[in-house]
Design a protein around this nucleic acid. Structure first.
Lengths: 332, 332
DNA sequence: CTGAAAGCGCTAACAA
DNA sequence: TTGTTAGCGCTTTCAG
């Protein structure tokens, strides 16, 4: 089943097992000639260190777990990709966990994995703050798209981003916007709504929130109907999936986008550029979020628990496309 | 750092370590009362079994590695999702590896992971057959979207699917099709071309292949230009991404889809339904492919190497949308 | 610079 | 049914 061990190499090379171990783990504590010899024998035998044995003793597993709240959301692809690349650059393995929007599932999986990984990066975790603190007590933890006082995080600058959105809509003549809210336990949803509301206040336009909605295309129908009901001419959806569903439903109901209603989403997913009309949306360097989160985690794993964990905020960019336009007419 | 061990539990519960071990691993070999007692003490202490220690001894890691040739391709999301769900159902951990279209990277990662996982599922592997056999010698292996004699695999029925495509195009009056081929080392690309060609032959219409193209939207420009050059009125792109790029480029050049040219893709990704015109494409139960692959792997891991590994073929479905239509006019 | 030996946490004989 | 004990493969003191 399993291949040659350190003993086989040691015997074959005529040295002690500790020397073989050193040749791999701390090459500078072995003479160059023995190291070369050992490595040569090892590769001839096809020896590969057993990560479990190594982890058992050292407590370091060279593995980080990434938990995403819903793997089917295209938004996470970039996050995953960034995280995976950064992990691999340090020869770490990335374990992917899908929480399917269930806090319970998220918690169970994390607990199961905790003894086997060096740390967690959580994307848009749906867990309550208290649970996050418990996790952080066990393992290094970095949050993505969520902030929690005293804990490391990487987020996009939604305060500024939402301000940009409102400014954009206001400049187009809109005087009322409605936010189609995301899941109830989503930090992101709360943050977006807070930022939109204060921006609206500052710019002197009305803002209401409807929801919560599960951020999927299929939910767009209900969301669109509610939005129409509200009478607002500008709709900001919790994410692009929901926005796409809204646009589809509006078309179905004969409401023209952007002539009658402007629609703005979040995330700038791949499909935002393909749908008709294309979607105005708040994007950002999502892959960098994933990358940065793993980066922080790997540093934290080395250091003793820092007292001021980094809270990184990356800039957003408002991508203007076809779904937002000047307010044309009052609606009834 | 690490929590309580089996020793702590044993001492606290007044039993031997082996009893604690048994209470967790083989509950029926311990009396009900001791088991309950042990489990109670364990949970009071917050004990969690260390997977590494377990793996070290048993050789089973409760982990499967999934390798995808390019994680940014939305097609894989469903595969990943299915695989992840199936793995979790058996309390297995899914390690995700991105090969970024590089056989070299794919190989290295697999070798690194081999001693730490129970097996591999490879999605659209770009490795040569020989390498796949070497991997299968080390660990149980299941291929997705690729077949190799004597090895387990799960694929969609592209022979029938491609026949459907050609039939569809022929019934619309097309007499010539061009296939925009995928990567050179892609088994899928070769299979699709082979199936398309023989279907075309059988149905008495012409078929040519152009390429290879990297299956991304950005490659659609070059692919479209080449397709136009070929004079064919029907274009079958290696996948939906490429097809979307092609449609975009055709629009740019004033070629109408489907009036002047019909375009068909593969995979039925989420965006295929959103772009304009929407994309006719060959889809299938991708999540089931992922699910089935892991299922086979988990069974294989238990059994001694079966002599006839399963080669599962799942049905495709041709999804008719706006990008394919009746041939209207001859083109020059 | 190298070797001997003691574990890391757990499981699996073998006894009792 | 339960306890004792010997490792799984590796790292890491501690001697030499």
């Amino acid at each position: 089943m399993s291949g040659p061990t350190i003993y086989d190499v040691a015997r074959e090379a005529g040295v002690a097992t500790s020397t073989v171990s050193r040749a791999f783990s701390s090459p500078n504590r072995v003479s160059a000639s023995t190291r070369e010899h050992v490595l040569a024998v090892a590769s001839r035998l096809g020896y590969r260190p057993n990560p479990h044995a190594r982890a058992l003793l050292s407590g370091r597993h060279h593995t980080v777990a990434m938990v995403v709240s819903d793997i089917t959301n295209p938004h996470y692809f970039e996050l995953i990709r960034g995280a995976e690349m950064r992990a691999r650059a340090s020869e770490y393995t990335l374990v992917l966990v899908n929480a399917e929007e269930s806090p319970r599932l998220e918690w169970d999986q994390i607990q199961r994995l905790a003894p086997a990984v060096d740390g967690f990066v959580l994307a848009a975790s749906r867990l309550p703050d208290e649970n996050l603190r418990q996790i952080a007590d066990q393992r290094p933890l970095v949050l993505m798209n969520r902030e929690l006082r005293g804990h490391a995080s990487v987020v996009l600058d939604h305060v500024r981003g939402c301000h940009q959105i409102v400014e954009h809509l206001a400049s187009l003549g809109h005087t009322d916007l409605v936010y189609l809210g995301g899941p109830r336990n989503s930090w992101m949803a709360a943050t977006r709504w807070g930022a939109l509301r204060s921006a609206a206040l500052a710019l002197g336009i009305g803002a209401r929130r409807i929801g919560p909605f599960t951020p999927k295309v299929t939910q767009g129908g209900a969301a669109a109907d509610a939005a129409i009901n509200s009478g607002a001419t500008a709709v900001v959806a919790h994410n692009d999936l929901l926005a796409i569903g809204v646009v589809q439903r509006l078309a179905q109901r004969g409401v023209r986008v952007p002539d009658d209603v402007s629609v703005v989403g979040f995330d700038n997913i791949f499909a935002a550029d393909l749908c008709t009309p294309s979607l105005t949306t708040l994007g950002g360097p999502h892959a960098d979020v994933g990358r940065a989160a793993v980066e922080i985690l790997l540093q934290a794993a080395g250091t003793t628990r820092g007292l001021d964990p980094p809270q990184v905020v990356l800039p957003t960019e408002l991508v203007l496309r076809g779904s937002s336009g000047a307010r044309r007419a009052a609606r009834g």
